[in-house]
Nucleic acid binder design. Structure first.
Lengths: 326, 326
DNA sequence: CTGAAAGCGCTAACAC
DNA sequence: GTGTTAGCGCTTTCAG
């Protein structure tokens, strides 16, 4: 221990945790000794004493192959960086694929983490209820769709606004017949995004009838849906619930000898690597994940503060990354 | 505490950590009590006492936008799942972009992690030397290119074998003139992969002269290089050091009205989401990241065992994901 | 403003 | 096989 400075161990502790308790010269002396010896408090001891780990848990599920979704990756990066600035590290853990609750309990009971960030809210987040009943601090990335009155902090991205933005972008480019390809009706996220498209069309007095398809999130589904829509409704633009579906549209266009961005415009959602790399570039709605991470960490700091502050939900607006396809 | 079973706290500890020390009936009784009370040892206390955290640190750097590389994402998933089975969790941390060492030191000195997994070895891994001198246990994902005699455990994927596989695949498909598009010469990984391509050609008595380009890892570079090669050497197949470069080739082919897989074959490297989603599917070398994670965790268990075992380097062979582009 | 004492919850070492 | 003792390194509480 750094009694090198000629003070008690306690004074060292204070120098680290409550610097303003010490006299200026003492503080300086201790800080010098700390720097010289490269002292850093032992995590385990501090955790034991303070009953906190300065760790936030994030469960990751296996990335889905065959889709263009890299949201998680970008989000994790942002979260790690933002957490660091707040003095937290991110603990990653896995759970059984079929059980959205697995993994949380052990970490909680063993006091391994201070709080969780919950992401898979599309499942109708049973986690929220469960964690809530366990009095486990957590912030959700995703709205409580099924429980509007849920009393936990959350941060989400306004998918409807994103798709409205995308649709308006195509309207400004002169398109009048803009089709929608989205997910099946049981996805609240999908329905939300769809609503943005509908809103933008109706705001211009345009009808959305016959211009929408609801399919699975695969390239093939996107290709089939766009082919059918082109035949039946002859749209000149497509707004899609995902980059994966948009890639299906590009596939159909290529098969028919149509040039994306010139003959038919296409917009995807998520600004995945695929959108960035494919020719001629896929215009895509980009979630402000850095900002999401900032809001989440901020909510987390509230939850873990003294006294705890439970903030309201935060809804962020995405941007549009415009590329060659529109 | 679970004295509900009528035993001492120590017996509980033994039941959890050294079950074979107890008599069968005592053990059973304790285990029942544990189950009833939902007891789980407090992490912090255990960590303090055993001087270990059961955490392994992994530094992540910001994902590069505009490239098709999702290796890190898949690897992190695999590592988390494998670590869990070995009783470890993964602690993610960030570092300053310009300092490959930043972030490690604090975690080490504060005993926050038991070991590290080091991934950015393409930097000529100064981390290895630094961590070694600090006696910090770590396993590298990546060979010690600049220091063949480095005395630390590592796991890597044989890029040369992967590209040889890719090239042989094209040879079997009847291609004779197969070009290479890779990275600049200062990348040992790139030179290694290139060597696999060369080896496969020479094994067939084919010349590799005039069939190779070394460029930056961008789509545009891949497009330009492939255009130049098509003009100068008229290859019928391309093997690329990355999916990003391969996307550039596809772009050139599209611009010239050539159909990938029919007129010209293309193979990428990394089996990214882009490869899986692009039309008509990009054949790509796939790293066995699940296996890499298993080997890494195994090496980690050796390092952290009593006594520590330092294993040798492990070199794994990738596979080829064949799709429409070949 | 600084020092001394107590104890967080667990497990390694030793006695019984 | 099981219970007892001690102490991991820190911070909170309380005296000086």
């Amino acid at each position: 221990m750094a009694e090198r400075a000629g003070v008690s161990r306690q004074t060292v502790s204070n120098a680290v945790n409550n610097p303003d308790l010490l006299r200026a010269d003492t503080l300086l002396r201790v800080q010098q000794a700390i720097a010289e010896l490269g002292y850093l408090p032992n995590r385990a001891a501090r955790n034991l004493r303070t009953r906190s780990s300065h760790l936030i848990g994030l469960r990751i599920s296996a990335a889905q192959e065959g889709t263009a979704n890299a949201t998680m990756d970008r989000f994790v990066h942002s979260l790690v960086e933002t957490s660091r600035d707040a003095g937290y590290h991110v603990l990653l853990f896995a759970g059984e694929a079929d059980d959205p609750l697995s993994g949380y309990d052990d970490l909680l009971r063993s006091t391994a983490v201070d709080a969780f960030v919950v992401t898979d809210t599309y499942l109708g987040n049973p986690q929220a209820g469960w964690l809530g009943s366990r009095r486990a601090p957590f912030v959700a990335f995703g709205r409580p769709w099924d429980a509007p009155e849920a009393h936990h902090p959350w941060v989400d991205v306004d998918g409807a606004a994103g798709c409205e933005l995308a649709t308006r972008h195509l309207l400004e480019r002169g398109h009048q017949r803009i089709a929608w390809i989205g997910w099946r009706k049981d996805s609240p996220i999908g329905e939300d995004r769809r609503e943005g498209w509908r809103r933008a069309l109706h705001a211009q007095g345009l009808s959305s009838a016959g211009l929408a398809a609801r399919v699975d999130d695969t390239v093939t589904s996107g290709a089939q849906a766009s082919a059918a829509l082109l035949d039946d409704a002859a749209p000149t633009g497509f707004v899609c619930a995902s980059d994966t579906l948009a890639m299906g549209v590009l596939q159909t266009l290529a098969a028919r000898g149509l040039t994306p961005g010139r003959d038919v415009a296409v917009v995807g959602f998520d600004d995945s690597q695929v959108a960035q790399v494919v020719t001629p570039g896929l215009t895509s709605v980009r979630q402000p994940l850095e900002q999401v991470a900032i809001e989440i960490v901020s909510a987390l700091e509230g939850l873990l503060g003294h006294p705890p502050r439970v903030g309201d939900g935060v809804l962020l607006t995405p941007t549009l990354a415009v590329r060659g396809s529109s």
